[in-house]
Amino acid sequence: MKLIDALHRWTGGLIGLLLAILGLSGALLVHRNAWTLAPHAGDPRVADVRQLAEATQRLMADPAARPQSISYASDDFGLLRLMFEGGRGAYADQHGAMVMQWNSQWERPELWLFDLHHHLFAGDAGEWVIGVAALCGLFFVLTGLVLWWRTRRTFEWRLLPARMSRPAIVRHHRDLGVIVAPLLLLSLVTGAVLVFRPMTALLFGPGAPARIDRALAPPPPRDAKLAGRLDWAGMIVMAQARFPDAELRSLTLPRKNSGLITVRMRRPQEWLPNGRTTLWFAADSGALVAARDAAALPPTVWAYNLLYPLHAAKVGGLPFRLVMTLSGLAMTLLGTLAVWTFWFRRPGRADRKRPSYARRSARIMWAKRTG
C-alpha cells in the first residue's frame, strides 16, 4: 500500500498540472460554438443543397484563393470554416461570403485552445504526450480509489477544501476524486483510445485496431493532380443525391498526393459530428471514385466512432455538456491541488512522524462510537 501511495503522489505531482490544463481547456471547448464570436454564427443551418452547392462553387472557383478545406455549418454554429495553407483561415456565411479572416491560429482563441488541448502546440509529438498523460491519469484515478477505501469512513461531500492546509486538501482531494471518478474515467479512457488506436483492443477485443483501420481506409491513391477548374457544385449535388438524408459536413482537397477530393457527410443515426459517410472524387476530373455508407460499417467501427462524441460531449445536448464540463473542472481542481500539496505543501520531518489526518480522524470517530 505504501508503494501505491508513493506512486500515486508522484504521478499527481509530476503530471497534475498537465492534466489540469487538459481539463480546463476541455471544459471550455465543450461550449466552443456558444462562445465563438463572429457575424452570423447564430444563423440556422441551411439544408438546401442548391445553396450549399453554389456557396461551395463560389469559394473553390479561384485556384489562387481556394481553401484547403471547408467545414460546413452545423445546428449550433451557422458559419462555414475555411482553412488555407500556412495556418490562415476564414469564416464565411452559408452563401459563401467572407465575414472574418485570420492569418494565424493565435488570432482566434477557439483555434489555439483546440490546438492546446489536442496537440499542446507541438503537433503529433504533443498528441503523443497527451495520450501518455491520459494513461497516467487513469493510473491516478484507479490508485486513488484504492487509497480512498482505507479512509472511506471519513468521507465528506465538499466542493472545496475546508482549509488550505495540507491535511484538509489531501482529504478533499480523495473525497472529490471518488465522486467524479466515473466522469474522469470516461474522459481519460476515451481520450487515451483516440490517441492510441491499438488500445481499442482493450475495449473491443483482439483484432479491433486492424478491423477499424481496414474499414476506415480511403481508396488507393490516384495519379491525378488537382485541376484548375472543377464542377464543385456538381460534387455537392451528387453527394446529396447519393445520401439524401445526410448532412453535408466537410470538403477537403487531396492530401499527401492522394489525388482524391474528400466529402464527408453525417447521416441521422451517426453520433460523430462530421460523420463517417464519405465520398471520394477524382482531383483531375471531379468524377465520383468511391463512396462509403456509415450504416454499413462493422459494429466495432460503429462503437469506435462513439468515443469522440462522448469525449467531446457532442451528444446529449446541454445536460451532457454540463456533465463533461464538471469532469474537466474537477480534473483541473484535482490536478492543481495535487501539484500544490506535492511541491509546495509537503509535510515536514516532524509531520511525517505524526499519524496521518485520515488515521487521526478514524481514531477519533472510533473513540466516539465506542464511548
Rank of each mutant, 00 (worst) to 15 (best):
residue 58 R to L: 07
residue 59 L to E: 06
residue 59 L to C: 03
residue 59 L to H: 07
residue 59 L to Q: 05
residue 61 A to M: 00
residue 62 D to W: 05
residue 62 D to H: 08
residue 63 P to N: 06
residue 63 P to H: 08
residue 64 A to P: 11
residue 65 A to H: 14
residue 66 R to V: 13
residue 67 P to I: 10
residue 72 Y to S: 10
residue 73 A to E: 02
residue 73 A to D: 01
residue 74 S to D: 07
residue 75 D to W: 04
residue 76 D to R: 14
residue 76 D to C: 10
residue 77 F to L: 08
residue 78 G to V: 03
residue 78 G to N: 03
residue 78 G to A: 02
residue 78 G to M: 02
residue 79 L to Y: 03
residue 81 R to E: 12
residue 84 F to A: 09
residue 86 G to T: 11
residue 86 G to R: 11
residue 88 R to T: 04
residue 88 R to F: 08
residue 88 R to I: 01
residue 89 G to S: 10
residue 90 A to R: 06
residue 91 Y to S: 02
residue 91 Y to Q: 01
residue 92 A to S: 10
residue 93 D to M: 02
residue 94 Q to N: 09
residue 95 H to K: 12
residue 96 G to E: 00
residue 96 G to M: 03
residue 97 A to R: 14
residue 97 A to D: 14
residue 97 A to V: 09
residue 99 V to Y: 01
residue 102 W to S: 12
residue 102 W to N: 10
residue 104 S to F: 10
residue 105 Q to I: 13
residue 105 Q to R: 15
residue 107 E to M: 09
residue 111 L to D: 12
residue 113 L to S: 02
residue 113 L to G: 03
residue 113 L to Q: 02
residue 114 F to E: 14
residue 115 D to F: 05
residue 115 D to N: 12
residue 115 D to M: 04
residue 118 H to F: 13
residue 118 H to K: 15
residue 118 H to D: 12
residue 119 H to R: 15
residue 122 A to T: 01
residue 123 G to V: 07
residue 124 D to S: 14
residue 126 G to D: 05
residue 126 G to A: 07
residue 127 E to V: 08
residue 128 W to V: 15
residue 128 W to M: 15
residue 129 V to Q: 07
residue 130 I to F: 05
residue 131 G to H: 04
residue 132 V to N: 03
residue 133 A to I: 02
residue 134 A to Q: 07
residue 137 G to E: 06
residue 137 G to W: 04
residue 140 F to N: 05
residue 141 V to L: 02
residue 141 V to Y: 04
residue 142 L to V: 15
residue 142 L to D: 07
residue 142 L to H: 09
residue 143 T to F: 07
residue 143 T to W: 05
residue 143 T to A: 05
residue 144 G to T: 04
residue 145 L to N: 00
residue 146 V to K: 14
residue 147 L to H: 08
residue 147 L to N: 10
residue 148 W to L: 09
residue 149 W to N: 13
residue 150 R to Y: 11
residue 151 T to E: 12
residue 153 R to Y: 00
residue 153 R to L: 08
residue 153 R to T: 00
residue 153 R to W: 00
residue 155 F to V: 00
residue 157 W to Q: 06
residue 157 W to D: 00
residue 159 L to I: 09
residue 160 L to T: 14
residue 161 P to Y: 01
residue 162 A to H: 11
residue 163 R to T: 08
residue 163 R to E: 07
residue 165 S to K: 08
residue 166 R to W: 05
residue 167 P to E: 09
